[in-house]
């Protein structure tokens, strides 16, 4: 879908979720622009960012949906879970309430994504060690119990931001290699791009996924 100069083999769809103000947009901005955005306005609906990365010598285009944390956009943002191969679930280590809501985010994610979606837990703002409200051990335990990958990162300093996105991609790529991820399923959040991606029509011939009926 891009006539850009890059050839890439796959598109991975990510979503970033989490409470309002945990720094989702800043994480995305740090990852795509390698810059910290100081006065980041509230996201309305969804924002979008892309970057091409390389995993095991394969060029992969990350198509990242940054969702609004505000409750009133929940209906809009829910639409984007379905196509996600990776979900970055973010909380703010200086605000316990954002951590406490993780289980509801996780439930949403599990319900709306498919089982192979890689969920990565990110404790953001780890540069504000002095104001820490959630210990690393606690979050780490939560991640372990729920089978999530976990890292503490800082969108401000850029610490671990790259790692979080790349680790997720590696895991997804692993699933593809293992055959656990069905590339033909629209809901997989992964598209295979044979050599040069052309401009596809609006609705591509994605096959309906049977799991849809779970609702």
């Amino acid at each position: 879908m891009s006539a850009g100069p890059y050839n890439y083999s796959y598109i991975f769809k990510y979503i970033i979720i989490g409470d309002m103000g945990v720094g989702k947009s800043c994480l995305l901005h740090q990852f795509t622009e390698k810059k910290f955005m100081a006065d980041c306005p509230h996201t309305i609906g969804v924002e979008f960012g892309t970057r091409i990365i390389e995993v095991s010598g394969q060029k992969i285009k990350l198509q990242i949906w940054d969702t609004a944390g505000q409750e009133r956009f929940r209906a809009v943002t829910r639409s984007y879970y379905r196509g996600a191969a990776g979900a970055l679930m973010v909380y703010d280590i200086t605000r316990r309430s954002t951590y406490n809501h993780l289980s509801s985010w996780l439930t949403d994610t599990r319900n709306l994504t498919n089982p192979s979606t890689v969920i990565f837990l990110i404790g953001n703002k780890c540069d504000l060690e002095g104001q820490r409200d959630v210990t690393y051990e606690e979050a780490s335990k939560f991640a372990e119990e729920n089978g999530l990958m976990f890292v503490e990162a800082s969108a401000k300093t850029g610490d671990n931001v790259e790692e979080a996105f790349l680790e997720t991609a590696k895991k997804i790529y692993q699933s593809i290699q293992d055959g656990r991820l069905d590339l033909n399923a629209a809901e997989s959040g992964v598209q295979h791009k044979p050599s040069q991606p052309g401009r596809n029509p609006l609705s591509n011939d994605q096959q309906a996924n049977k799991d849809n009926c779970a609702c």
Binding site: M1, S2, A3, T50, Q63, S79, G83, A186, E187
Partner: peptide
């Protein structure tokens, strides 16, 4: 292209919702 890609992806998400 970039904008179109984005619109397309957003449309896809909405089509998914509608399908569901």
């Amino acid at each position: 292209d970039e904008r179109l890609e984005r619109l397309e992806a957003q449309s896809d998400a909405q089509i998914d919702t509608l399908t569901s």
